[in-house]
């Protein structure tokens, strides 16, 4: 295994593009090292991104959004009070990843690029309308987070492409987001279902909404049907029922040791209702 420490994303992309065998980028390593040690993925080239300037920083963008470096750990994300105030749902998704020790290293971008349908931070990012900047041999492009996952363990990134930054849009007024997951324990487990809701209010009515569902299909889903069920409502009982039914209707899950297909479909509806209520309360000013 060759270990590379490029100083720019362009260099990282060049190394990846010219690599012949198995290539991995190294952010927090909490997936890469587990796969390396299990022998399931033995990279020929490992490209450590942590020597590139800016990868550890969180900055406000000119329009009031956030630019998050690709090596920012879950612990540093949670320590940024202004970011937490804007996007509590995004941060709570990431903070559910692993233990304190894992939080010291694990990143949003690594969680996204590992390609797990149960990745805890991805529904929150999709609901938030986050984008990533992709640097490749022929320049950079911006891609919506929901267009990155392709299937379990697979992304739509091409050979030689690396994510160079993650951007959250400006939060704006009267808005809130939330993420909930179901696991059989209280800590340290993989989501059986995860649901994120981000919405904006106009008075008491939901003016805009984005709902993302995790662990119920081969990739995390952005659900238009769920958004339609609540836009224009005050999130009354009828709207919540419609949201729950829409969420259950979107699911195409597997059965495994953590939960059956039927259970996942049911729980997706329950969590969608609960997450929507939390997001609504936060939009009304409730603190995370």
């Amino acid at each position: 295994m060759r270990y590379h420490t490029p100083a720019t994303f362009a260099d990282a992309a060049t190394i990846a593009a010219s690599a012949q065998g198995v290539t991995r980028f190294l952010a927090g390593g909490t997936d890469v090292l587990v796969q390396l040690r299990a022998g399931s993925v033995l990279p020929d080239d490992l490209i450590d991104l942590k020597h590139i300037p800016e990868v550890h920083s969180i900055t406000r963008t000119a329009d009031g959004g956030w630019r998050i470096g690709v090596a920012v750990s879950g612990a540093s994300l949670g320590a940024n009070k202004d970011l937490v105030a804007d996007w509590p749902g995004v941060v709570e998704g990431m903070e559910l990843v692993g233990s304190t020790q894992v939080q010291g290293r694990a990143t949003l971008t690594g969680n996204l690029c590992n390609g797990s349908p149960a990745a805890d931070s991805v529904p929150g990012l999709i609901a938030a309308g986050a984008t990533v900047t992709v640097t490749g041999p022929s320049g950079t492009r911006d891609v919506a987070v929901q267009d990155i996952p392709k299937g379990p363990g697979k992304t739509n990134l091409k050979a030689g492409e690396v994510i160079s930054a993650l951007t959250l849009p400006a939060r704006g007024k009267n808005a809130g987001d939330a993420y909930l997951r179901f696991i059989p324990r209280t800590e340290m487990d993989i989501a059986v279902v995860g649901v994120a809701v981000s919405l904006r209010l106009d008075g008491d009515k939901v003016a805009e909404a984005r709902v993302a569902l995790g662990a119920v299909a081969p990739t995390v889903l952005l659900s238009d049907a769920c958004a339609k069920a609540i836009v224009g409502t005050t999130l009354d009982a009828k709207a919540l029922d419609a949201l729950g039914a829409a969420a259950s209707g979107e699911c195409n899950p597997i059965s495994d040791k953590r939960g059956t297909k039927e259970f996942r479909i049911e729980v997706a509806g329950v969590l969608a209702r609960r997450a929507a209520k939390i997001a609504y309360d936060r939009a009304k000013g409730a603190k995370a």
Binding site: Y3, L26, G29, T30, L33, V34, R37, A38, S73, A75, G98, S99, T100, Q101, V102, G104, R105, M188
Partner: peptide
């Protein structure tokens, strides 16, 4: 594999599992 914490150390003041650091 990062699950047990028996290998805990700090790196630049941050708690990590040293089995998941190269």
């Amino acid at each position: 594999t990062g699950d047990c914490g028996a290998c805990s150390v700090t790196v630049d003041g941050v708690l990590v599992s040293s089995c998941l650091v190269l």
